[in-house]
Amino acid sequence: MWLSFRFPLGFREVGELVLERGMIVSCGTVRRWCLEFGQQYASGLRHRQSQPGGKGHPDEVFIKINGERKYLWRAADQDGMVLDILVRSRRDTAAAERFLRTLLTKTGRVPRVLVTDKLRSYRAAHREVMPFVGHRSHKGLNNRAENSHRPTRQRERAMKGFRGVGAAQRFLAAFSGISPHFRPRRHLMTGTRHRAGVTVRFAVREQVTGVTSRPAAA
């Protein structure tokens, strides 16, 4: 199951990788595995992460679902950790307020400062939901959230789009917790540190999923 979230593959390619381990499954079976265990896997990884930073970077990007434009709202901290996502049909104040409220509920923490772009809906939602939190509105300061959209774009292309709002919400909620685990900030690490970090991340993956490494061939 974790393979379909870890790599930019389709269900058919994942089925072939599972077949290599000696199991015969259909694409539908892999899809059901993802729906049943994906969020559980993502939650287990999030519980092992450090506490989010004091800066919240909410941002929104449009996605196409069955040819209709929808908006993916996403918040990340200053280190790039994805805090929450929400798929909505609109890009207005009501949607911004809904997103900020769910962000507070899910993280259980109040950010020290909110960094957004120039969208006016953020200002109105900030005054309504968290007026006691500092707010900085500047497009150049919100690059952290802008960069966090890239893995989603890659998966969107690999999956040839999403089929429904509910399906997109379920998948991206799990994917946003799984993908960063396997995407360390490589440009800030030495080769030795990166290899050690990847080894630890795969060990954590095995603890969360209960999957053991494939035994070496004799």
Rank of each mutant, 00 (worst) to 15 (best):
M1E: 06
W2H: 15
W2D: 13
L3A: 14
S4F: 14
R6D: 05
F7M: 08
L9Y: 15
G10D: 08
G10V: 09
G15T: 15
E16M: 15
L19D: 09
R21K: 06
R21A: 01
V25W: 12
C27S: 03
C27A: 04
T29V: 15
R32N: 12
L35Q: 14
F37W: 09
G38Q: 04
Y41H: 02
A42E: 01
L45D: 02
H47M: 09
Q49W: 08
S50E: 08
S50H: 11
P52E: 01
G53V: 04
G54N: 06
P58I: 04
V61W: 08
I63N: 07
I65H: 14
G67R: 05
Y71G: 05
R74Q: 10
G80C: 06
G80D: 02
M81K: 12
M81L: 10
V87W: 02
V87H: 01
R91V: 12
D92M: 13
A95N: 01
A96Y: 14
A96H: 13
L100W: 09
T102W: 02
T105M: 10
T107I: 11
T107E: 06
R109T: 11
L119Q: 13
R120F: 12
Y122D: 05
H126V: 04
M130T: 13
L141R: 09
L141Y: 10
N142R: 03
N142G: 01
A145S: 07
A145Q: 01
N147F: 10
R150N: 03
R157H: 04
A158K: 07
M159R: 15
K160M: 09
F162I: 12
R163H: 08
G164Y: 03
G164H: 00
G164D: 05
A168F: 09
R170M: 08
F171P: 09
F171N: 04
L172S: 07
A173Q: 01
A174N: 09
S179F: 10
P180E: 03
F182V: 07
R183M: 04
R183Y: 04
P184D: 03
L188M: 10
L188R: 13
T192F: 10
A196W: 11
V198K: 11
T199W: 11
T199Q: 14
R201F: 12
A203L: 11
E206Q: 15
E206H: 14
Q207I: 05
V208L: 07
G210A: 04
T212A: 10
S213G: 15
R214Y: 07
R214V: 10
P215Y: 01
